[in-house]
């Protein structure tokens, strides 16, 4: 495939992996440029269908208005439970990386 025909260019792949916060190795990038464009080409089959005038689906069975009452309950977790799976914590807080 000629480079100009690529939908997913190396630059776009970089942008997408930044948006998705996924650090890719050079090898993965090479594989993805190849595979993703092939897959997209396959996806493009949907261009054949005229969907104008069709409403998008929300709940597939058309369900609406499921709401609950404003009452405390559910499955509250203790601080110990909330922190139990965090790798790093301090004084009840969950520790996250630095911002800058």
């Amino acid at each position: 495939m000629a480079r100009s025909e690529l939908t997913i260019t190396p630059e776009l792949l970089d942008h997408l992996s930044n948006l998705a916060k996924l650090k890719l190795t050079e090898e993965e990038k090479r594989i993805f440029i190849r595979d993703l464009n092939r897959i997209l080409e396959y996806f493009n089959v949907i261009d054949e269908v005229d969907t104008s005038g069709v409403d998008q689906v929300f709940h597939i069975l058309g369900l609406t208005n499921t709401m609950r009452e404003d009452e405390v309950g559910g499955e509250p977790l203790s601080q110990e439970q909330a922190l139990s799976n965090a790798a790093s914590k301090e004084e009840g807080y969950i520790k996250a990386p630095r911002m800058v």
């Binding site: 998705a20 996924l22 650090k23 190795t25 790093s88 520790k95 996250a96 990386p97």
Partner: peptide, 17 residues
């Protein structure tokens, strides 16, 4: 676990990668 030596966006990218 994330790598605490990195700023958040790099730490996220690394752990997810």
């Amino acid at each position: 676990p994330y790598d605490p030596s990195l700023p958040w966006h790099e730490a996220f990218s690394k752990v997810r990668g």
